[in-house]
Amino acid sequence: MNILVCVKHVPDTETAVKIGSDGKSISTQDVNFILNPYDEYAVEEALKIKEDKGGEVTLITLGPEEAKKTLRTGLAMGADKAIHLPCDAPPDSLSIANALAEVIKDIEYDLIFCGKQAMDNDNAQVPIMLAEKLGLPNVSAITKLELEDGTAVAHREFEGGVEVVETSLPAVISAHKGLNEPRYASLKGIMMAKKKPIEDKPCDCGDAAIEIVDVTYPQQRAGGKIVGEGTEAVPELVKLLQEEAKVI
């Protein structure tokens, strides 16, 4: 089974992100970029299927030259090869999905995995839009997957339960936390990743479909007060919640 995994190069979640000098993007100075955490689940699931059924795992990313570092991370986990679509400033989800679909339509694959959302812009849209552009079914944000002959059965959480979804293959499936435990790259894996091929393919993101008007910091919360220590502070806290905050 040949599997494509779409990945993204994103700031580490520990980053205190700062607004860039243009007021419309983030400052990348001193920011450590990583393989998007949700994409780790996607890579892991692809590797598990490869180990079980054979085939090849190919990573694909659209991003700046530095995004190759993220491709190397996935290659070190065990992916076989990677495709890099150079784009210094990836635009909105629709434009990215269009550009990805344009490249992917000429590639042979049995399944496409993505992380459910990139932890920078939190759009959670590219996997689903990509599926539509490729004319494939999608199952988004899954926490369990079983492959059968030509179909897949996935679990998808919603507010109040789980939907068990059956889909024909190929499909675009996006991974949520809980799907698996991503492996750490071994030293050998890291060494081998350096020799694995990364192919640059031209891509066209076209005109952005969304205009960024501005980026601002959310209102900071003013620090509150320490009511007291231990259980003795409870009566005062309850009084404050009732009379001052008026929430209970």
């Binding site: 607004i19 005109d207 479909a209 960024i212 910091y217």
Partner: peptide, 8 residues
């Protein structure tokens, strides 16, 4: 962060 976006 908050971003203000406009559909084109």
């Amino acid at each position: 962060l908050n971003v203000t976006v406009r559909s084109k």
